[in-house]
Design a protein around this nucleic acid. Sequence first.
DNA 1: AGCACGCCGACT
DNA 2: GTCGGCGTGCTC
Length: 723
Amino acid sequence: MRQLLTSVAVPVPLYRHFDYRVVAGQAAQLRPGLRVRVPFGRRQLTGVVVRAPFEAPDDGQDYRPLGAVLDEAPLLDPDLLGLCEWAAEYYRHPLGEVIAAALPGSLKHEGRAELHLPQQWQLTAAGREALAALPERHRAQRAALEALRSRALPSADWSAAAAMRARLGARGWVECRAVDTQAAPCAAAPTLTAAQARALAELECGGEAGFRVSLLEGVTGSGKTELYLRRIEAMLAQGRQALVLVPEISLTPQLTERLRERLGPRVLSFHSGMSEGEREQAWLAARAGVAPVIVGTRSAVFVPFARLGLIIVDEEHDPSYKQQDGFRYSARDLAIVRARRLQAEVILGSATPSLESLHNARSGRYRAVRLRERVHAQPPPRIGLLDVRGQALAHGLSPALLGALDACLERGEQALLFINRRGYAPMLLCHACGWRAACTACDARLTLHRGRGRLICHHCGAQQSVPKVCPSCGQSELMPLGQGTERIEQALANRYPRKRIERLDSDRLGKRHELERLLADVRAQTIDVLVGTQILAKGHDFPNLSLVGIVSADQALYGADFRAIERMGQLVTQVAGRAGRAGQAGEVWLQTHEPQHPLLRTLVERGYDALADALLEERAMARLPPYAHLALLRAESEDAALPLRFLRGARALYAPFTDVQAMEPIPSGMERRAGYTRAQLLLQADSRAALQRALAATVPRLGELPESRRVRWSVDVDPADLF
DNA sequence: AGCACGCCGACT
DNA sequence: GTCGGCGTGCTC
């Protein structure tokens, strides 16, 4: 007796698929990529067919019948399904869960895949009149209308609330229409500088199509975006589509807007700040070929395209491209894999490329394209080191830095201070007895947030009010130690009472449109000093800064993580790149207690590339990426003894793999976090293939270890950091 | 992951 | 006497 079966990937954390009996009449439409409902244990799940129906001998197993078929045509085309399969293999994550991560919103479940043509809101003639006539006090309405004044906006990008949309619509002031995705009311392209033209010619590769990766290394302000635009235009002209990845949600509106000016309303965004419905529609629009360009964050690498020809990864070095929990993929790396499968083109753009990409460019695997000059001919900023040893610091600021700031503000110019730590101070100390405010759930100090009057753990989010007296000795000698953005902001506000000081960190960005507001004010020059965290380093444009101060970057020099200095170099270079105005170099000062540190000196004297060279040499010696390949097994449990015991068991599985080093399991950098004790096991191999072989054979068996039930464990292939 | 089954503690 | 704790087994 033979039977007809089909294999289905189900969203469960199991390293296998499940076979179902094909019901009469279903066989014809069952193809890989199709969504189906399946009985699974006592529940019904939505899975995806991964193997077309096949005849199998009756092996005595009782297969359950397939349920409803949810799509007429496979929702996942071969490109996307193939990418998911590749990613599941490479990152050792169950395929069903990978697919679930690739599907937006309700398509994960039973939602119908129905594309409504993308809609956009626009002002009507009546709306235009109303905007002119509307009294000043109707601020919300004015703002909502104002946003549409110069152009129509896709539903996802118009900030007005649903109630507001309805009200304005009812008055006939705005209307919602399908986007004309063919229309391209384009702004004219600017003339390229000679350097840009040269770089573009290299990117074009003589017009040859096919898979290639270009690393576009261009300093801040060198005009990378214009080159992205030119390549996108070329793709669109060939009827192909483009995907643009950005590291952060906050960068999507800016870039989307810039692309839309030139390419018209055909540019859609895709990120987790959008509603499920909006994301689903953008996903379907790209799949149908209706949206020629998608700008999105990490997860957009899984958006299907009918005719994808180009993937741009902007700020490719940014660690946000690596997902840090669950399915730990790198969107940048998957973009390259996807392009290779599709014979498409990739452009990795950065002023400070990752060591991996630099290595690939130098070894000829990627085409190296450089843009050395800034468009407005500013000389590149030079970073000056300020030796703060023995200096009297006021809230962490040295007399020299304050002097430079005085002079800058005296001239009426703008300054930026970078400190990669939010809150007021990273520690609250009792001067009388030495007590420190610590988190009860983590091995960490609590950060003082003075504005909110709270002590907050930055690792688990736990909060408490600030004690008036020391909880340990009762004396009132509690003092904040160290500094964060809030403290610098306050110190400057006290020092310059007539200047406008603003802070830019994730605490402030909680409010919607706060970032746009602040950036607009910086551009309008109504802000004199901007104090902020690494958000400042992420590609936002500050056109008029004449001074950049880096309060400290020393932390990275003592950091245990092998990428800490690379990150520091990227941050410092990116922040420093904000300095300078048309035709004028900015001033950049970096405070340090380690003015002799050779890598720090390399960075400030010879620049990021020289630092990268030095770091690459170190990596080669230490057999670290990109010269070797790593994977990290992590385990955590409320029972402090279990993670190490589990990992010791896991380590034994690697004994047969002589080409892979399985290190002794060790407690994680912060051993206790959110009530869990954490440990990790590092795997190191000279070849990716060797590492993959070992992982393939061992990861599916980790669940069989006796402790596996009571620890949460995960595999991290190409870990971003070893904590 | 969910969900059920199963075998020991403090209570409507 | 039950309600429910979470160990452990299983999902085509």
